[in-house]
Design a protein around this nucleic acid. Structure first.
Lengths: 197, 197
DNA sequence: CGTTAACATGAGGGGTGGTTCCGCTTGCGC
DNA sequence: GCGCAAGCGGAACCACCCCTCATGTTAACG
């Protein structure tokens, strides 16, 4: 019961300096690889990009999926920041909502893996709880404000936006894969569908 | 140059009776397996359902992908029938269009693999040329009619509908996988986005 | 009924890609 | 400096799944 130990929980002693560096390198390499090639990027490729061995990847993330989840959580937090910023803007209610969605879409379209994650069966998404909760709350507020101003269909919900973004993810993926689709067009039509009128 | 041989093309002599039977059994089994579990259904599982060996599957379809393509083509033809029927109806232009889309969506939502195909990078879709062409033509006519009546946004194209259905496929897949999404809601919003106003 | 070419079978080859493990290296406290 | 626990590397392992092929079976025709 020395003071150097926590009493109730296991205290994970701070990582060694090189280990922390490697952890960051792995995260950066994974973000790059997943962003370019999607979730089918191989662990070995990520390790190579990071300049470490696969063993090191597995030391920091018990599973490939855990790595995906960590990145997804980070992306959710960034999106939540974006939407909260739109909320703080307090300009035209519709424009604030629409521009938030456009911004999220822009960033999603640049990240193959993210498109797959929001489009997918959400194994990783389900576990990225904190950022997702913030994002949902901020989105809900944005929707409520637009509805109060009478510029958004009264029955619109946060889930509708999730649904639209789920579809969006796949449209963007397909476009990247060469299909003659246009995610900007998709979003234009979906936003018009959410508008009041 | 006997009369029993075609002159210009190789005449594939008719299949033996048991071979034709097996071919049909494989197609039916594949439709069932893909419909339930999507494209990741294994060839061995399809063979088992059909009551044949994997070798028989490969005798009739050189590749798993060829089997998918054959089924996709059949599905496209069925959809083309649906849309052409809507076109022949000549009722309210908007209702004809919307009900055709709802019908296509209903049938898609029941078939996991089909959702994956229309949502996917379209390897199989690209090769299912005939049915797809019919479908596109009929859809274009339906759109033109609705636009002429002033009930559909003037800039809507067949590609917009493809885009919407691409997103649709993934929403339906995710919903089936347990995500809290609703493809009917998705289609409602998308249709409102296509409407004039 | 006999012959033969077409057909069916399913164990196994081969490629892929996530994960483990053990011998080696290195940061860090003394 | 020294010792050691923490960290690292990457070959090997293993599970999965598409596809092949050598061997056995059967429809079709004279």
């Amino acid at each position: 019961m020395e003071g150097s130990f926590r009493l109730s929980t296991i205290a994970p002693r701070p990582l060694r300096a090189d280990a922390r560096r490697n952890r960051e390198k792995v995260l950066a390499a994974a973000a790059a690889a997943f962003g370019e090639s999607g979730l089918e990027s191989q662990v070995e490729d990520i390790a190579r990009r990071a300049g470490v061995g696969v063993g090191t990847v597995y030391r920091h993330f018990p599973t490939k999926d855990a790595l995906v989840t960590a990145l997804a959580e980070a992306h959710f937090e960034r999106l939540a920041d974006t939407v909260e910023a739109a909320l703080a803007q307090c300009g035209d209610p519709w424009d604030d909502f629409a521009s938030a969605l456009w911004r999220c879409a822009e960033s999603a379209a640049r990240d193959v893996a993210w498109c797959e994650i929001i489009a997918g069966d959400a194994g990783a998404v389900g576990r990225a709880a904190r950022g997702q909760a913030r994002l949902h709350e901020a989105t809900g507020a944005l929707i409520a404000r637009a509805q109060a101003a009478g510029v958004m269909r009264a029955d619109a919900t946060v889930q509708d936006v999730s649904t639209i973004m789920c579809g969006f993810g796949h449209v963007a993926s397909s476009q990247r894969a060469g299909a003659p689709l246009d995610w900007r067009r998709y979003l234009t039509i979906a936003l018009d569908g959410l508008r009041a009128g």
